[in-house]
Nucleic acid binder design. Structure first.
Lengths: 153, 153
DNA sequence: GCACGCACCGAATTTCGTTCGGCGGCTGCG
DNA sequence: CGCAGCCGCCGAACGAAATTCGGTGCGTGC
């Protein structure tokens, strides 16, 4: 994990579809070398995949929210079951299982504000393990690239 | 935005680096048609980019947390300034500007739990606009693909 | 019923990914 | 200090892919 690897990771986070040749040119190394580096990064598990990012507005789901959920009991079965349930919901984008005041933070996107209310009433309030929930509408959401290791790896 | 477009978006979220030929074969259309579709999706702003996903553990930042932050005053300048400040911090992965009890939710990743404490003390508690903050360690984080529009677009 | 337009297709061209043999530097040991 | 082994990088060659473009069929509106 040297400077070149970090640069590769940074570049591929910026644009995962740039050609290997372009990437190599940016880094000042040969394409074959670059390819070998990228393969090693994937095999080592540093790069886990490549994903297209979409505009939720363009997909007709402009309203995003974060749902704080408390569940009981906090057994492994209940937690895993609820997590699987959340992932199955089409509105769900991210699921955070957290320590502290809340147990789950659920990032959702819906077509309109009404859908948020429906979601809460139809999919959350009815479930027995859910003892409390609270929703926060998201005004802005910025996702940053991971620039690199904070400690030299 | 028909079924084919939805399938393209779904497939490219699963693997943004699969070849256009493979994608076309999956969809049962010609590669040239597929390419044209993908280009249109990008131009329409449905697909906003392609990003490599990385394993934070492999990058030496296994500890993730969500920081709830309240700031005052809630003026545009202060909000934008604080947001820009957050994005500049290398530990930050996501910034949510939210309504409700908290003003900001900040997703961070650090090398160790100590780093979390340092981050809070050094980067947050000193700032005058920050009136309150609270941190929740993340046990699990699942990111889902956006399967498609919830309403036919 | 006819003409227009749009989307799809398939072949041709260009570019790219991928492999492989060889080279240079670095390291560790004699 | 010299030598041998190794690892990573490079560049050319090959196969595969991206991209372009002209033709075609279908749906639509007049």
């Amino acid at each position: 994990m040297d400077d070149i690897d970090s640069a590769i990771v940074r570049e591929l986070q910026r644009d995962a579809r740039q050609t290997n040749r372009d990437l190599a040119r940016t880094l000042g190394i040969a394409p074959s070398t670059c390819l070998e580096r990228v393969r090693a990064l994937r095999q080592r598990g540093v790069i886990t995949g490549y994903r297209a990012t979409v505009d939720l507005r363009a997909l007709g789901r402009p309203v995003q929210a974060l749902l704080s959920v408390r569940i009981r009991p906090m057994s492994r079965e209940v937690i895993e079951g609820f997590k699987a349930y959340l992932i199955g919901l089409p509105e769900v984008l991210n699921v955070y299982v957290v320590a502290g005041g809340d147990d789950f933070l659920v990032h959702v996107a819906v077509p309109e504000v009404d859908g948020l209310h429906s979601l809460l009433m139809d999919r959350f309030s009815g479930r027995r393990e859910v003892v409390d929930f609270r929703s926060s509408v998201i005004y802005q959401h910025v996702t940053k690239d991971v620039v690199g290791p904070l400690v030299a790896g």
